[in-house]
Nucleic acid binder design. Structure first.
Lengths: 204, 204
DNA sequence: TTTTATCCTGCCCTTTTGTTCAGTATTTTT
DNA sequence: AAAAATACTGAACAAAAGGGCAGGATAAAA
């Protein structure tokens, strides 16, 4: 029980191709037919070997239950995040009516274990941070932020990106483009933090 | 036979989840068990409806052979582009030894029907265009460019992003950060256009 | 109201499919 | 050389799984 033999590898590859083509794994007999193995037990031996070597997983007595272990890379790398358009008054951000579309993003670019959404940037107030008009901002949902971080702020139902500078009794939201003056949020104003900036995606 | 009923949708969703979890579709009985349907025929009716409505495909008399049709978006919206590290001398850009990783990108962000790769931006010479150090630049492969476009240029095996300004007997590659002077390429210098900028992805 | 579709039960049948047992020949390890 | 793993045949078995028939109760559409 050392290496994967050529035969075993061929069988493994066939299973892989079969799944790619059919979306479900082949039966023992289908494999046997492909390789001219007349006894189901011949295939069985190969499958047991492949399982011992950690290439596949079989679920006992279940039809078409071969699972490939080594080769998971295909789909797993992309996550789908909702693209938020306008935020309807009184609705949570991720409410269905706010979702304009979904966007595939590589998981490596996202923080794990938190809710994420995307927002289309309007205006050039954040060009100083390399965020241009029309960019998609990836936002990690959270209710609080640290001083200076770039946050997605909800002001009167509109979402904007700004640097967060809180003080005693008011919050200052600063742009990174010198042409814009800070927005001052006083107590009682309609304001909330939707999340903090986790990434930017641009189509040129 | 019009809309998908709530029940049918629930069953469809269960199949979807099951596949996600197990990598292979459930049996008729497994579905029935989940929903408290005691007769396989109860499930069968639902599956026949779902098939009529084009949501699934069943292969007759084959175990675990339900295939989801509508829910292709999960894969279809993402494309995998190679992330190019250093470009080994004399190799084509997409040669395997140059590929550092692969990156999932939403197809909507990519130009169709052309070869695409990604490049990690080194340095801050293009901050004027909102391209920061460490950003991933999405490049559409092509050998020529128009004046002023942002290109990925290969100079002595290294790839850089610059604005392309050709003239009679030399090429000027301009940065968009004022602190950098243009690079002048004379005839005979090792230079080639790898492609033009098609997008930017940043992780904050 | 009549028809059609949905969503079931219950029972039975047939096919599909995984498993097991008893061997055999060959190759690889130890 | 002996032991272990590979790579099968062949037959038989039992469980798993899909399909069919005969309804029934509701709900939705015509």
């Amino acid at each position: 029980m050392k290496k994967v033999t050529a035969r075993q590898h061929a069988i493994y590859n066939y299973i892989k191709e079969f799944i790619l083509l059919n979306k479900f794994p082949p039966t023992v007999r289908e494999i046997g037919e492909k390789f001219g193995i007349k006894s189901t037990n011949g295939v069985r031996d190969a499958l047991i070997s492949l399982e011992k070597k950690g290439l596949i997983k079989k679920f006992s007595r279940q039809a078409r239950s071969i699972e490939l272990l080594q080769s998971a890379p295909s789909i797993a790398t992309a996550a789908h995040v909702p693209l938020i358009g306008r935020i309807a008054a009184g609705t949570p951000i991720l409410a269905e009516e706010n979702v304009e579309d979904t966007l595939a993003v590589d998981k490596a670019l996202l923080p794990r274990s938190s809710q994420i959404f995307a927002l289309r940037v309007q205006g050039d107030s954040m060009t100083g941070d390399g965020i241009l008009n029309g960019d998609l901002a990836i936002i990690r949902m959270q209710k609080n932020a640290e001083r200076g971080q770039i946050i997605a702020a909800i002001i009167d139902g509109d979402a904007t990106l700004k640097h967060y500078y809180p003080s005693e009794n008011r919050i200052e939201l600063r742009a990174s483009n010198g042409a814009y003056s800070p927005i001052i949020i006083d107590e009682g104003d309609s304001f909330s933090i939707a999340g903090i900036l986790a990434g930017v995606i641009r189509k040129c």
